[in-house]
Design a protein around this nucleic acid. Sequence first.
RNA 1: GUGGCCGUAGCUCAGCUUGGUUAGAGCGCCUGGUUGUGGUCCAGGAGGUCGGGGGUUCGAAUCCCCUCGGUCACCCCA
Length: 414
Amino acid sequence: MSFRGPKGTDDILPPESRRWRELLRSWDLLSEQYGYAYVATPLFESTDLFARGVGEATEVVEKQMYSFEDKAGRNLTLRPEITAGVLRAYIQAGLSGEFKGSYSGPCFRYERPQEGRRRQFWQLGVEYLGANHSEADLEVIELGYRYLLDCGLGEVVVHVNSIGDASDREAYHSRLADWLNERRHLLSDQAQRRIRSNPLRVLDSKADQEVVSEAPKPVDYLGKDGLEHYEQLLAGLTERGIAYRQAPRLVRGLDYYTRTVFEYIPPGYTAAQNAVGGGGRYDGLSRLLDGPELPGVGLALGLDRIISAAGSSPPARALDVFLVVADQNRRSLAHAFARRLRSAGVRCDLVAGYRSVRAQFKAADRRDAAAAVVIGDEWDDGMVTIKDLSSGYEQVIPAGEVAMWVVDGGAVPR
RNA sequence: GUGGCCGUAGCUCAGCUUGGUUAGAGCGCCUGGUUGUGGUCCAGGAGGUCGGGGGUUCGAAUCCCCUCGGUCACCCCA
């Protein structure tokens, strides 16, 4: 036990890794169904991109970045989130107009690990660029919601809020800062410091909930357009049958959000980090990154959190058949047979080298195969013995029918 | 970055309070019973610098100090 994985990282091993693959696959499928095309951006970007995009005053940028200098002295950072990189890619490619991108991959934040919070974690997300209308927000929220339901998370509730656009926020910011200043003595040290740097963020400080529960709310300072956008959003959520709750003090810790912000809260997930995903609108982000005027709305889901919130599900079989070589002279023949089965789409494996028949059956069981197929004397008549490893029932069938047996779902007729 | 709890076999843990033979159990793993039958059963086996370092002592898994790691929470977010 000399080497361990770095602090806050996890190895994804079977059988759990099967669940990971499944969830990644269904994410690709679902986001494609909604018209999002796969995008991949680098795992590291220039440090400035995140400092500017995510916001200098955010927790993420202040202390959670995995930053390093490369051999040419460039300042780079392992991505703490993916939105900034996707925007950068869009701008760099000189794209214009609407763009719908979907992604999945690891992100990195340097923090003390705890349940639901790792230094390397896996995000799934989409970005809908170039769309102003609340229907875009709704589509993104619906996509994430449906995905979480498909994952078996049960009665997920979407917490939503609107924090207004740039002009709404100007009015609100100073009003909130004044209000907080009047109650300065009641606030935690950190909250006091934030009154200047980022008053919005005081709203979701756990330590200051009591004081802050009476504070003016962002929704009460929305302009005409912002209010209309928010009302359309709420009406749309109802219309689409999405369970939601207004969360007037939800602000989220990334500075680029405007108007809509939301989080997905699954039932019965009691970890302190209980949101399995979230997102919002970021109409000013493109300009911040020297891009064109470009509205956008996006969503990020934490795959690690989804999996621990979903609990364990009955694992599917890992293999369809495991070959048991009864006669050692038929080993190369067995390997050839395995190649044929694999080409036919059968998940098939066998041990390497000599093992007793008994040991091979043990291996078949341990590898979680649905059936064992014995290759022995019966091969001379073109036959194999196939045994259903759940029921124990076995029979001799033509070797050519093994693939069909698998397609039929592995049920051996009695 | 701050705080609580925990480090003994691959895993889950007992032993520590009150220092004293060779440090244990269950599960897992390997071999055999059965070189054509697994998941059950029986027999045998491998596997430990008691997280690391220092100290106290005739003697430390056990007491003291330091350190590293894990975990949960704060902060914040996926």
